[in-house]
Design a protein around this nucleic acid. Structure first.
Lengths: 365, 365
DNA sequence: ATAAATTTGTGCGTATGTATC
DNA sequence: GGATACATACGCACAAATTTA
């Protein structure tokens, strides 16, 4: 009869593994030194090293040069995947390609690849997306939250990410419930203020506002709009504010502006603050259809300084969006989070918007 | 001054890995024995074993007790990753976001994620990119080749993909050496013909052509241009053809058109066929700077029907590019390749371009 | 602040076992 | 059986990082 051959290193591996799984060796505990293990088990140091190598690869332990070998906190099956997930609401919606470009630029220089996902601003899609990503092997996440105005029902997924040691950076917006997570966004309140104050500065008083209601950006830009009006001593008129949802973005703002324009004789207005350049273009189109011209009759501001602002029939006065630089900043922040702890104050970055004046606003006559 | 520390086993690992990726060692090949490698590299057998251990773990080689060490056929046997790599030259360059959108749309419906990479139309970046992807776990690849006009020096990487069972779909262009690989592209020859024939049909005879020289699209559009001229009985005039490289795309076409425009009195021309809409916009700008207007003095055609075509100061007559549909078609083809064998005739799809007439071309007076 | 001790990382040499041809 | 090649195992030396005296 023949005995099963059991390599000594395998015996040692099994023994140590069961000690860890059994709780005898707890996470963060220091294991005996290689020499100590060699002596205790009556094997050579090389054999110990082989066993520890296997355990390291399996994720049960990690080593620190000069300090020792330690039981790891939680098991990451494989090593770093060098994959970073990037989740945005849309891929083509005008400034996202540039943001993604900025992210890709920085990350690929550091040997990372990008896993791209889009949610179409749907909460369920975002949740499904995160679940998928948790099953894959990613090292980090950059995400633009969907419908950031409403309560987030899947905070548990973000907690899970945190527990897995996968850092996460929010861009554009963030969730009110998770204020401590890293983010990079624009001061949209200030941006809305800048656009509106520019118009009041030009003497306009009846200023229409068109805002998106289902993300924090829209709500903040609206607040800036209201602040600027108050500062200029202009009463807030809810009838001049148009709210729209993502789904209706193609039609609703356009139609509402046409409705207001039809009543221009009875209830004139001087200017329109649009949520972004896309809306501004629709606004100008709607005005033209009703015989009003921009900027002669009505001044219009955009937001984001997209390609539309420059190529539009009227050069749009708009609020500059950092685009590539936002992407780069997000990527750099993520890289720092991957390497070391980053103090809270540096984990949350707010970029300052600035106004770009073109031809779509004119002094009131 | 301090020397970079390089462990010998790492040196050996790198060397062997690059031999495998470089094609010097091919799948199923037997590597030299451990002793032979030790002798050749002047290291101990232990060091060789360490290097081979790493390569084994990475999946590049496998060992058979008593037989030898072999280059592995398939990298990574760890099941489908549900990741598809998408490699394009640029991410933001005007129609790519839409193509990627189309791909993402289809693939995400089937539970796949997208790994995004860009090459900036650099061959070395493309090669580096493919090597990176081979080390990751991808199920398939959609790639827009870089500098597709020149001989591809890294066919072995594509062969490796094939041997690993990773299907690959080319979009936009393909390499002349690998005619049997699946692709989806536009009939660019036809597209160039359509644009040029439209101009000859309007009575234009001296037609400038601006083409990109470092991809097949440019060469094919040029051929279509030449075909249309011949068909109209117009002699080919090399002085009217401007070639440019990717690196010079921002300046060179613009400056060359200005140069031609400066000599307009002596050597007038009727129209310009531009490689794409971006170039067309630059062309129109150059013409304007020299006091020539489009379409009154000179007709201009674009290509791709990008957002520029519609938002440009003059509505561009251009050749429609399927964009999203191209992306969707590529994704669907890849899905089919992942499931089953696809007959050659269905693996290669050429989409028909069509002309979109706007305001940038006028009948010659 | 420095030196010594500890601990992991790299590398070599050797011996023996075992599977394949 | 013999040659070859991988697998396991031990011992030793020195380097590099860290902690301790």
């Amino acid at each position: 009869m023949q005995q099963e051959k059991k390599p000594k290193y395998e015996e040692l591996t099994r023994d140590l593994r069961s000690q860890i799984l059994g709780g005898a060796i707890r996470p963060k505990d220091k294991l005996p030194s290689e020499n100590a293990l060699a002596a205790r088990y009556g094997v050579s140091r090389q054999t110990v090293r082989k066993a520890l190598g296997i355990l390291t690869q399996e994720g049960y332990v990690y080593t620190e040069h000069g300090r020792g070998t330690f039981c790891s906190g939680l098991l990451k099956a494989c090593g770093p995947s060098k994959n970073i997930a990037v989740v945005t609401t849309y891929l083509t919606d005008y400034i996202f390609p540039q943001v993604i470009q900025g992210i890709e630029q920085v990350l690929s220089e550091h040997g990372y690849s990008i896993l791209l996902k889009s949610t179409k601003n749907s909460r369920t899609a975002e949740a499904r997306c995160l679940e998928e990503l948790l099953q894959k092997n990613i090292d980090g996440l950059i995400i633009e939250p969907s419908r950031s105005h409403i309560f987030c029902r899947h905070t548990h997924l973000y907690e899970m990410l945190e527990q897995c040691g996968i850092p996460c950076v929010f861009i554009q917006g963030n969730y009110a419930q998770m204020q401590e997570l890293p983010y990079i966004l624009l001061d949209d309140c200030r941006g809305g203020y800048l656009a509106t104050a520019h118009l009041t500065g030009l003497g306009h008083r009846r200023i229409v506002g068109v805002f998106k209601s289902d993300d924090v950006q829209g709500q903040k830009r609206h607040r800036g709009y209201a602040d600027a009006l108050r500062e200029a001593g202009i009463g807030y008129d809810a009838d001049l504010v148009i709210w729209y949802y993502t789904e209706d973005r193609r039609q609703h703002p356009y139609q509402e502006v046409r409705r207001l324009a039809k009543m221009y004789r009875q209830r004139p207005f001087d200017a329109v603050v649009a949520y972004n350049d896309q809306i501004a273009v629709d606004v100008i189109r709607a005005l033209l259809e009703e015989g009003l011209s921009c900027p002669a009759d009505v001044s219009v501001t955009g937001y984001d300084d997209s390609y539309l602002a420059a190529t539009c029939s009227v050069g749009l006065t708009t609020v500059a969006h950092p685009k590539e630089r936002l992407g780069e900043a997000a990527a750099n922040l993520l890289l720092r989070l991957l390497q070391a702890d980053v103090p809270l104050s540096e984990r949350q970055i707010v970029m300052e918007p600035r106004l770009i004046v073109r031809d779509s606003c004119k002094k009131r006559t």
